[in-house]
């Protein structure tokens, strides 16, 4: 598994680390430790760990559009919902369709990506702010559809008795089955977003974030670049939705409210916008803290709102700022220039 290091190294050029293995090893430690110790956890903490990993992947996906391109997407949960309902409808008694998990994972993620492109076309050629309001509306519309297309989605009751997922002959039913799947997803998505950051696409997205007009003056087709980022982001959200539905084996519109989108935004704002490590840290804090503070559940959202304002005002870069990403770690541990 030295591929992550090699994948990112060439683009780093002059600032590349001399040795790749220390950084790669440090980063691999996290998934390896999770795989060794995770399955031994009791069921309840294991479920929480699964949720942390799921939100970390969601955070990594949303980061592409919010952290890299600097555009606010307030309806990320819509893509998550599209993925979840894909599995719920294509692998349950609802229409008596029972497609394999791997196929639905691809279908769900692709449908979400397609929705992202269709939604992005009218909005992304405009200035950034409109995306926030359009995605907010889109999230709401998807929820209205889930609630009212009774014949398809079963309305507010949701869809229960969803199939057990099987992946290449391996049954996914217990929380530790999903731990393996989620760790694998995390690694893949992490490498992917890191790769985006280091590639020309990442450079273009950063330019869009910093100064869209100047980026266009430098020859960047900002609309297309944003559209690609938005589609990637939606694709990952959709994939997470499929996994979520397979994990819960039940979906209903209630799981896909605006508050879910808000939590995912918070995951990356708290952790550090534009930093893949930030998504991991943010997801850990945001899933763990409410579990620890159950007695104050009523105040959870109030606290989230305050956290958002306070972090933006006092520490706008989040806990881990943008520059201390995986490439920095590779250089740091590999003896390159920092």
């Amino acid at each position: 598994m030295e591929s992550p290091a090699r994948a990112a190294a060439p683009a780093s050029g002059a600032a590349a680390p001399r040795k790749l293995w220390p950084g790669a090893l440090a980063m691999l430690a996290v998934p390896v430790l999770l795989l060794i110790f995770g399955p031994h956890l009791p069921s309840y903490p294991l479920r929480i760990l699964d949720m942390i990993l799921l939100y970390a992947v969601l955070g990594l996906g949303l980061n592409i559009i919010v952290g890299y391109a600097g555009l606010l997407d307030l309806g990320y949960v819509a893509f998550y919902a599209i993925g979840a309902y894909s599995w719920a409808l294509l692998a349950s008694g609802q229409f008596d369709i029972h497609l394999p998990f791997a196929l639905v994972l691809l279908i769900g993620a692709s449908l979400a990506g397609l929705a992202g492109i269709l939604l992005g076309i009218p909005v992304l050629r405009l200035r950034g702010d409109y995306l926030a309001i359009v995605t907010l509306g889109f999230g709401e519309i998807i929820r209205v559809l889930m609630n009212n297309l009774d014949r398809v989605t079963n309305g507010p009751q949701g869809i229960a008795r969803i199939d057990e997922a099987h992946l290449f002959g391996w049954t996914l039913s217990t929380p530790d089955d999903f731990l393996y799947l989620l760790v694998a997803m995390l690694v893949v998505v992490f490498l992917f977003v890191w790769r985006i950051q280091e590639s020309a696409l990442g450079t273009a997205l950063s330019a869009v974030r910093e100064d869209q007009d100047a980026a266009r003056g430098c020859g960047i087709n900002t609309t297309r670049v944003k559209l690609v980022a938005f589609a990637f982001s939606a694709f990952i959200g959709g994939g997470c939705g499929v996994v979520f539905a397979a994990m819960q084996r039940f979906v209903s519109p209630e799981s896909f409210t605006f508050w879910e989108s808000l939590v995912i935004v918070l995951v990356i704002v708290v952790g550090g916008l534009g930093n893949p490590f930030g998504a991991l840290l943010g997801a850990t804090l945001l899933i763990l803290l409410p579990e620890l503070l159950r007695a104050y559940a009523d105040y959870r959202l109030l606290f989230y709102g305050m956290a958002l304002v306070v972090i933006i005002l006092a520490r706008p870069r989040g806990l881990i700022s943008r520059q201390y990403g995986p490439s920095w770690l590779m250089r740091r541990l590999g003896g390159g220039k920092c």
Binding site: V66, G70, L71, L72, L74, G128, D129, A132, R209, L262, V265, V269, L273, L301, L302, Y304, G305, M306, A307, L308, V309, I312, L313, P316
Partner: peptide, 15 residues
């Protein structure tokens, strides 16, 4: 940035 005030506004709305 343009993003920061929007996020702050969102937080205020939630509060």
């Amino acid at each position: 940035s343009r993003l920061a005030p929007m996020l702050s506004a969102l937080g205020m709305a939630v509060v």
